[in-house]
Design a protein around this nucleic acid. Structure first.
Length: 430
RNA sequence: GCCGCCGUAGCUUAGUUGGCUGGAGCGCCCGGCUGUUAACCGGGAGGUCGCAGGUUCGAAUCCUGCCGGCGGCGCCA
């Protein structure tokens, strides 16, 4: 029977013979006994290999090979309080599949060394736990959207124009011309709502910002949605439900992994609807009241965000930013056109911004005048402008930084731990 | 773009008011061990102290340049 370690760590298997495949996680020899701690994708189990049971040749081979050798074995399960996961295999057969000698990673490894050897470090129990949580976050994102009437769609990675500013695009040669790597699918999603009404996409976005912080990647996973007929508050409602859905999915399905990472799960369990909505103006007052040096009109810096969000246990929406510090496409508030109908979602515990979103300008003349204010040429955005000419509708959308969300949920100290192969300003390998 | 820091064995590092042969832990090689928990015990190999130049009787240590790397800010998801 093809079993995983997780399956056989159970009283149901006591006395039963099992066949397991995996990698050597730890190995200790005591004369004529070798303790092999075997690892697979699910867990670890200690296996006792005695010379008299497997023969001197196999025993010697096993003694020679190092950690991370792959092997299959057969043996009986026994309850054993001295074993790391409570059960032990009395091995009757071992077959080494792929030997490993001098595995580069052992104790006392620097962060930098582990990043250089990420292709090997992904095998660690810590990365294994994080990657499982990450997989569940992606699952939950897709589940949420599909359960709520959104169509999944795709936008191009090669683009010719910017969504946000111009300075943050990666330029790539494109058959003698220039193209850029996308920094957001937003404008494409806006075109697609006129066909599908509610759309989402999960894809990488690229930012050439020379950001050197624990929260920035040059290539990050972006979950973006756009919905026709939605106003700012409608979008916030969906986002709130989505975040709660994702958190619940991870808490339900990844308990073991969260515990392994020593995440305080009670903090995640406290995350329920509704999230507080706070106008930018109020947030500035709140920030000032706790001693942050900030004034109306300033964007929130990392220190301010940290000072503010460490005081919250749940995410908080910040709305109605001054239009001057937000991109041109946000719809000005009809009741106060100096602010826009936008929202950022700040994660608690100091993690900060994970979502940026808002209601888009849907009237042609408003869009053109905002573009003029920002010094943008409408010809460069002809297809975006067209959307306001042919049956425009109110609509809203958002972008979620999935890696940042994972960082918060898993309680990680740096975004580079949240993704298998982080790309930062200073790293493109392995 | 701005500020700060670091390069010593395969890895993690001690040693920097200039001074004996640059130490240690892990890993590796040889040997031992029937209950180990990143096992332990005995022995061993392994260093152009990032590179180049300078100061000095003497440089891992001081100076200059170069190369490589790291942390943080700004900006954003």
């Amino acid at each position: 029977m093809d079993l995983k370690i997780e399956d056989v760590l159970s009283d149901d298997f006591i006395g039963k013979e099992v066949h397991l495949r995996g990698w050597i996680y730890r190995k200790r020899r005591m004369g004529k006994i070798i303790f092999v701690v075997l690892r697979d994708s699910t867990d670890i189990i200690q296996c006792v290999v005695e010379k008299k049971n497997v023969g001197p040749e196999v025993f010697k081979m096993l003694d020679k090979v190092g950690v991370e050798s792959s092997l299959e074995l057969r043996g009986k399960i026994r309850k054993e309080s001295r074993a790391p996961t409570g059960y032990e295999v009395d091995v009757s057969m071992v077959n080494i599949i792929g030997p490993s000698y001098n595995f580069p990673i052992s104790k006392d490894k620097s962060d930098e060394f582990l990043l250089d050897n990420r292709h090997l470090w992904v095998r660690s129990r810590e990365m294994n736990a994080i990657l499982k949580i990450r997989a569940t976050v992606f699952d939950a994102i897709h589940e949420f959207f599909k359960n709520n009437g959104y169509y999944e769609t795709q936008a191009p990675m090669f683009v010719t124009g910017a969504v946000e500013g111009g300075a943050t695009l990666f330029e790539v040669p494109y058959f003698g011309r220039k193209a850029y790597l996308t920094q957001s699918a937003q404008f494409y999603l806006e075109t697609l709502i006129f066909s599908l009404e509610k759309v989402y996409t999960v894809a990488p976005s690229f930012r050439a910002e020379k950001s050197r912080t624990r929260r920035h990647l040059t290539e990050f996973w972006h979950a973006e949605a756009e919905a026709a007929w939605y106003h700012n508050k409608d979008m916030m409602r969906d986002e709130e439900e989505m975040i709660v859905y994702i958190i619940n999915a991870v808490v339900d399905r990844r308990k073991k992994e969260l515990e392994f990472l020593k995440r305080d799960v009670s903090l995640l369990k406290n995350v329920d609807k509704p999230f507080e909505r706070m106008k930018y103006e109020k947030l500035i007052e709140f920030a000032q009241s706790i001693g942050v040096d900030i004034k109306y009109g300033d964007d929130l810096g990392a220190d301010e965000e940290f000072a503010i969000t460490k005081n919250f246990e749940k995410p908080v929406f910040v709305t109605h930013y001054p239009r001057d510090i937000k991109p041109f496409y946000h719809r000005p508030d009809p009741e106060n056109p100096s602010v826009v109908l936008c929202h950022d979602l700040l994660a608690p515990e100091g993690y900060g911004e994970i979502i940026g979103g808002g209601e888009r300008i849907y009237k042609l003349e408003v869009l053109l005048s905002r573009m003029e204010e920002e010094g943008l040429n409408p010809d460069d955005y002809y297809w975006y402008v067209d959307l306001r000419k042919y049956g425009s509708v109110p609509h809203a959308g958002f972008g979620l930084g999935v890696d940042r969300l994972i960082m918060w949920i898993a309680g990680l100290s740096h975004i580079k731990y949240a993704i298998p192969y982080p790309r930062t300003t200073r790293r493109t390998k392995p």
